[in-house]
């Protein structure tokens, strides 16, 4: 994972979120307040602008800048949650223009921990965590299995992470929300896919796509 790939990931994520913004908002309308797509699109658009205007020299600095931008621009719950995760990822990475796949995986987990500390969600609460946690578990498992050497290791691990995030996202459908605005609906939140888990999948899929790109 180097600076170029880090930027390419966030750029790809911004594209995916822009393309899916309407879908995210539709999911949010069912169990929330109809703004998840709008907010995520505004936030990742701001990240794109911030990264274009800065020249971070380390991989960590890319994510720290992106995270701070989300915290400053988005509001709501998704801004602080994704912003804190990206900031923690950035801070967890060793200095330098390139980090290995194992260090990046540890950074992804540090991001998850920061997000969970802030939001207080446990697995099964029908939140971002339900896609993020299986994604980092799958990432680590893939690295252990295939080794993290070279670009091939990172590509395989991120592919596994994206697949696990998708599975986790779909598994939120039958859950009853226990955190965030959807929790106010009680049992009426059952049967709807969680918008936060969905945007998390989009972000992990963007990571896999960016890592697979030649």
């Amino acid at each position: 994972m180097d600076v170029a790939l880090a930027k390419a990931w966030l750029d790809t994520a911004a594209d995916a979120i822009a393309a899916q913004a309407d879908q995210l908002t539709t999911l949010d309308a069912a169990i929330g307040d109809s703004d998840h797509g709008v907010n995520m699109n505004r936030g990742f658009g701001a990240v794109r602008t911030a990264l274009a205007g800065a020249a971070p020299d380390g991989v960590g600095a890319v994510f720290t800048l992106a995270g701070s931008t989300l915290v400053s621009k988005v509001g709501g719950a998704s801004g602080p949650l994704y912003g804190s995760a990206l900031r923690a990822l950035g801070k967890a990475l060793p200095d330098g223009p390139e980090v290995d796949a194992a260090a990046f995986g540890a950074g992804l987990r540090a991001g998850l921990e920061a997000l969970r500390k802030l939001g207080g969600a446990a697995p099964g609460d029908k939140t971002i965590v339900d896609a993020y946690l299986p994604a980092v578990d799958a990432y680590d498992a893939a690295l252990r299995q295939h080794g993290g050497d070279g670009d091939g290791g990172l590509a395989a691990a991120t592919r596994a992470a994206a697949a696990a995030a998708a599975e986790g996202m779909r598994a939120t459908v039958p859950l009853q929300a226990r955190k965030g605005r959807a929790s106010y609906l009680g049992e009426r939140s059952i049967g709807h896919q969680d918008p936060g888990a969905t945007s998390t999948w989009l972000i992990f899929q963007a990571l896999a796509d960016a890592a697979a790109a030649p």
Binding site: D33, S34, D35, V38, N39, R42, V71, S72, K73, V74, G75, G76, A77, G79, P80
Partner: peptide
């Protein structure tokens, strides 16, 4: 005031 139905940001 934040965006519509969205909390303000810390700044």
């Amino acid at each position: 005031p934040g965006e519509v139905f969205t909390s303000p940001v810390p700044d």
